[in-house]
Design a protein around this nucleic acid. Structure first.
Lengths: 360, 360
DNA sequence: CACACGTGCTGATTCGATTTAGCACGTGTG
DNA sequence: CACACGTGCTAAATCGAATCAGCACGTGTG
């Protein structure tokens, strides 16, 4: 306890050389300073014998880089979402020799600014600003001075700040492909949004999932059997929307805009005496925990939390050189993997052959 | 972008005074240096006009305190447990002007050491070492050099390091009190552990919950109607244990050693045609999410995640003075609050009067 | 032999704040 | 008038590593 730290000066003295020599050896740049192999050996030996560890605070003051990253999110760790994002960020940071500060804003812009400033005061190399759900955010001015990345968010204001977001458009295409591949065609209906752009207010995910879905359907020459928008993607609202749909038409497959909506749809279908997937197939988005709890387990396209966290760190640490170029800020889209479970029925091969014929 | 930071020297120059004067004014110690009110005003004005913010890296190098804390846990944020602990730690840290590094060891001692060292290298003021579940841990040597606190763990080795843990003994007393208050007396049985010390291997919580329970029962002069230990506190094991109990006796109330065990007990009771709470009351520990999902909702004693996180930070930041005293390291026990829900039946007042008479 | 040049290292400065030591000036005291 | 003492401030050292600017010594070249 209270062990005094070994400094570079100690190592240099113990190796009988100057601090400069020791410094260059230990940073692996001995050739640059033309340090002899013999001196190198002495320094390395002294360093390992004394148990020298460089003081990063000091290095940071001199060089301006701290091997430290700030991670600021509106909600930290109380949801599995945020948990896995942080997990990915931690892993990526560790792989690259960085440590992570974390902070939670609770959605308060003042707190957000204070946290960002507090991190900058501590010399972080950059900041990841993360959002719970995908949306556009006004980038705090205080974030603009130094390297930064938005996670699960895109900037409203003009800025050079890169974003890392799930590839929702492609996910929309994916769910359509799943249904088409299983032989569904004319009975596909949407729960949670409707073309051309009826989505929950402020929901970027809604817009993009819908875009992917409509594009994929259009490419296949398929028309929707129906579509009921929701003001919010919650189970009870999804329940009501599904009941309304069933009054007008009998779908063969539902695309629900997230797993909570799908849960509501499950209940409405059950109430109507319909079986999933025998009578109606269901596909969805997010891969919430509940997706594997419900019976039948839900086929859904997962939000790639862990990968989002990883990629945000990687983008941040590679971001500097191209900064301030006049191109629009890069948006990195992370694939959303399909989790195939038990809520989609493969139609009998006769029908599938029919479809194959149509396509050909 | 790339805005150059204002330094103390800039502020001093702009106020027309020395750095020393500016420094003492800004740290609120002007009387100590006998700085005039007029100079104070000039400095404060210059600081706010230039938007000066102290460089904490530099301060840290000089003073050795960084207003930064390391939080190392075996599992970070992927469970609501860890999430709420971190949430509490973040709040406490913010309240005291500190920022939190976090790190995850995945149970790997090497990684643990590396993380602790990396944090020390960055000049953290102290480290919280957190464990997913309450247990004894070997304190890493590298943790001993500087302030530290164990969270949800107590040291096996002799060390001065304080611990913050849930007050499991008192929680044991609490569940007994709930049952006694509701009029239960002779029909109380345990699922998950049995006196004197049959608990899942390595489970500190088991030992302490059992201790509290047996003490409270003894104080009330009540004997157990039965007790079935479990090798692990999982639903299926709780299910089996409950079935075994029911073959021997008909309890009026079960004390389950955690909520997962209680879930198994619910199923076994249902299979036996018994209603909760009409036929059998159930109380438990942890307040897992599932405790409010099951029907009837489960009366349980909650693990105080948020408070554990808060208290760990508070203890850490107040820990220095008494350090290295020869007394054993302090163990801070955090109360586990009772969540009264619907799984306990109040016995008819006749029986309760009978009990009151017995006691009197 | 004079001088350039390469080799192998060292001394001193820097980053930005904190802090110790001490200086100049005025006022009161014997 | 000499001298102590209080007041209000400044200069310079310090924390630990990185790094710029050289210095000494040998070797080769004209």
């Amino acid at each position: 306890m209270g062990t005094i730290r070994v400094t570079l000066a100690d190592v240099a003295r113990s190796a009988g050389v100057s601090q400069t020599a020791a410094s260059f050896v230990l940073s692996g740049r001995r050739k640059e300073m033309r340090i002899s192999a013999e001196v190198e050996a002495r320094v390395l030996r002294a360093a390992s014998e004394t148990g020298y560890r460089p003081n990063i605070v000091s290095r940071s003051l001199r060089t301006g880089t701290s091997h430290t990253i700030g991670f600021v999110s509106d909600t930290v760790a109380t949801t599995p979402f945020a948990g896995h994002v942080i997990w990915g960020a931690l892993d990526a940071a560790r792989d690259r020799g960085h440590l992570l500060f974390i902070g939670e804003t609770e959605g308060d812009p003042d707190l957000e600014r204070q946290l960002i400033d507090a991190m900058h005061d501590r010399g972080v190399d950059g900041i990841v600003l993360a959002s719970m759900y995908t949306r556009k955010i006004a980038v705090p001015k205080t974030l603009m001075d130094r390297p930064a990345v938005l996670l699960n968010a895109v900037p409203t204001t003009r800025s050079w700040i890169p974003s890392v977001v799930p590839d929702e458009v492609e996910a929309g295409r994916t769910v359509v492909r799943v249904l088409l591949d299983a032989g569904h065609r004319d009975g596909i209906a949407l729960i949670g949004a409707a073309p051309p752009n009826q989505v929950p207010k402020g929901s970027l995910a809604g817009v993009q999932r819908l875009q992917g879905i409509t594009e994929a359907l259009h490419d296949a020459g398929v028309n929707l059997a129906g579509a009921v928008p929701c003001v919010d993607w919650q189970p009870d609202i999804g329940y009501d929307a599904t009941r309304r749909l069933l009054k007008k038409t009998m779908p063969s497959a539902l695309i629900c805009f997230n797993d909570r909506v799908a849960l509501g749809a499950y209940q409405a279908l059950a109430d109507a005496g319909l079986d999933v997937p025998a009578d109606v197939s269901v596909v969805s988005f997010d891969d919430d925990l509940m997706a594997s709890w419900v019976r039948p387990q839900l086929t859904t396209v997962a939000l790639p939390h862990y990968e989002l966290g990883r990629e945000a760190i990687n983008v941040l640490l590679e971001e500097d050189p191209q900064r301030r170029s006049n191109r629009p800020p890069p948006i990195h889209r992370i694939p959303m993997p399909l989790r195939e479970r038990d809520s989609v029925r493969r139609l009998p091969s006769s029908q599938r052959r029919a479809r194959a014929a149509t396509v050909a």
